[in-house]
Structure formats: structure tokens, C-alpha cells
Nucleic acid binder design. Structure first.
Ligand code: FES
Ligand code: FES
Lengths: 160, 160
DNA sequence: ATAATCCGGATAATTATTATCCGGTTTAAT
DNA sequence: ATTAAACCGGATAATAATTATCCGGATTAT
């Protein structure tokens, strides 16, 4: 069991979009090039982020993508769900219910309860952090010099 | 991203083995039959549990499997690791390090830190519960009648 | 009108998971 | 000793999930 790499790539993509000045937009191939992802598949990921209302797409020449929400309102969890879907890590098959021949209103699934709690606990951490708080960490003193370079790159490659 | 069904099946298998009286053993096909798993693949799972020192196998005629540790010492987490391996849910590819052109001793991976924390949080829940505590819940008043049937079944199908 | 972009459906390639097979070793019973 | 029933582990196949590509259609700045 491993998280899709698409989640990681999406987070970085949103982090890049967060560096855009207002009204500006980034072409999908420019982003995938920077991130090192396959351009066509990466566009599918961007679509999922659009469907989740995290980013906006503008079609046509000079089109591209930009954030739809404020970075404070985009949680890492939102990106995770947008890409992975909201099905849980564990889907109880209720083996023990079969084995114990339990009727419907008698179900136990003790294990299911535990797994659900574990998952909530994992999600809670992803809900805590937002794009804004991640960006803040990345812009810390230690990296500020490099981030400046990156922002310059964004300005050179953005559109409108 | 979804947990292998093998983890769930293994937990139930260990729960069954926990119902065995001392010295007794359960044949792998008997277990997989009860759980509804493919016999050959299920044996691979049992092997992993053996490698993880959670259960013991006795070869030869009248052979089978039984617990190696006390049920209080088998955490759901141990079973999870035995089946899934200990690689983490998220393996940071360090995209941002590339993008920022960071040198080795300058790495950030802010996202990696967050994911690691989330995973620890998930694991903590699985570490809390043991086979003993699960069994206790299953043997609660509500299910005690059915569990008695199941134990009868175990006694009829165990060996030696 | 044209070219550049997003859109979305179909499809293929790759990888991970689940399942099977088979020859080997161990052991209880005859 | 011989046999039969079980575990062992390596090779391999089948299935499912993920990643990647392609192509025709819709939208928009020039
Ligand atoms: S069926 Fe899963 S614990 Fe009861
Ligand atoms: S490379 Fe992953 S957050 Fe820095």
C-alpha cells in the first residue's frame, strides 16, 4: 500500500500556482516540465484538482491554471482526497460476520472500527496543514534564496 | 491507495489461531476455507506471519499453524507490518529539492515531514490494539453465543 | 480564420497484487 | 522403510490498479 505519486506532484503543483501573481496563469506543460511528470497524465491530475474546486482552468490560447481558493483554505487533505478519492484505506469485508453467521443488525466488525479510527488519525494530520503553512515553511530563511530563484522562474513562465 | 486484503485476512486468521488450546494446530486449508481466501495465496500470508515470529508452523503430517506469542504481545500493527512490509505510505521523491536545486545538506522536504507524522499517527492506533484486546471485544456479551459455536468448530477441525 | 490551450473519453503500458503450480523437506502412521 | 499429509519457497501466471498516451472537440487571444 502506497500513496499515489500523483498526490505529491499535485501538492508541489499547487505550491507553484501559489507563487503566481493575481490574474496570471501557468501552462500545464510548463508545470509538469518543472516537476518532472508525464505531461499528459499530469493534466489528468490537474483536472481532478479543478473538479475539487481547488484550482481554476482557463481555456484557449494564453490559457492555463491558477488557484481558485486562498492558500489558507487549501488543506493538504483536500489535495489528497481530490487525487485519491474518498474511499477509505480499509474496506471491511466483514469476514468475521460471515464466520460468526451474524444477522445484519448484529454486525460487529471490531477491526473495521479500529481501522477507521486509524485513518481518521492520519487524515487529521493532513487536515492540519494548508498550502499557506507549507509555503511559509518553504520560504523560511534557510531556503529563501532558492525560493527567490523559483519565483523568478514562475514570473518568466507565467502567462498574462 | 488501499490496504491489502491480506492484512484483514491475516488478522482474522490470528484471531482463529488464538482460540486453539495449547499444543493444538490448525491446517492452513482449514483456515483459508473458513475465511474464504485462496488457499495457495493464503499460505504465503501465513509464511509472512511465521517470518515475523508471530505464529509457528509445524511441518509434516498433523502439521499446521499456531500462535508463537501470547495474544497480548501481538499487535495489529505487527500483523500489518508482516504483510505490508515496513516501507512507508509515502516515499518522498524530493521534487522540491530538485526544483530548488538544493544541495544534499540543504534538503527540505517539508511535505515528507508532514506525511511521516501522519503515518506515525495512523500506526499509533494499530499499535495500541492487540489480538488479546480484539478477542475480548469479539467475545463480548453481544457475540458470545456465536463465538461459542466458532470455538466448537475450531476444536472439531484442529489437529493433535 | 488560426493557433494554442484546456477537455474528456478511449486505450495502452506499466506496476502491484493476488493466485497457481511444482518439486523439496519434514513428520506421523503403518 | 514406506507412505501420505503437511509445510517451504521459488517460478510463474492472472488480475487489478496506476500511470501514460492519443485524438477529436470546445474555447479564446491574436
Ligand atoms: S466482521 Fe470484521 S471484526 Fe467483525
Ligand atoms: S522536496 Fe519535498 S518538501 Fe522539500
Amino acid at each position: 500500500m502506497q500513496m499515489k505519486t500523483g498526490v505529491e506532484q499535485s501538492v508541489y503543483a499547487v505550491l507553484l500556482l501559489n507563487m503566481l501573481p493575481d490574474k496570471a496563469v501557468l501552462h500545464s506543460e510548463v508545470i509538469s516540465g518543472q516537476i518532472g511528470a508525464s505531461p499528459t497524465y499530469f493534466q489528468k491530475l490537474l483536472r481532478k484538482l479543478v473538479s475539487a474546486d481547488l484550482i481554476t482552468s482557463v481555456p484557449g490560447v494564453k490559457g492555463g491554471f491558477k488557484l481558485k481558493k486562498d492558500p489558507e483554505d487549501i488543506r493538504v487533505y483536500d489535495i489528497y482526497v481530490a487525487i485519491e478519492g474518498q474511499q477509505s484505506l480499509y474496506s471491511p469485508s466483514g469476514i468475521l460476520n460471515d464466520v460468526l453467521e451474524l444477522e445484519y443488525d448484529d454486525r460487529c466488525c471490531v477491526l473495521g472500527g479500529l481501522m477507521e479510527e486509524a485513518e481518521e488519525s492520519w487524515k487529521a494530520v493532513l487536515k492540519r496543514e494548508t498550502i499557506a503553512s507549507l509555503a511559509e515553511q518553504v520560504e523560511s530563511d534557510r531556503f529563501v534564496h532558492h525560493v527567490t530563484d523559483l519565483k523568478k522562474w514562475v514570473e518568466e513562465n507565467m502567462v498574462v
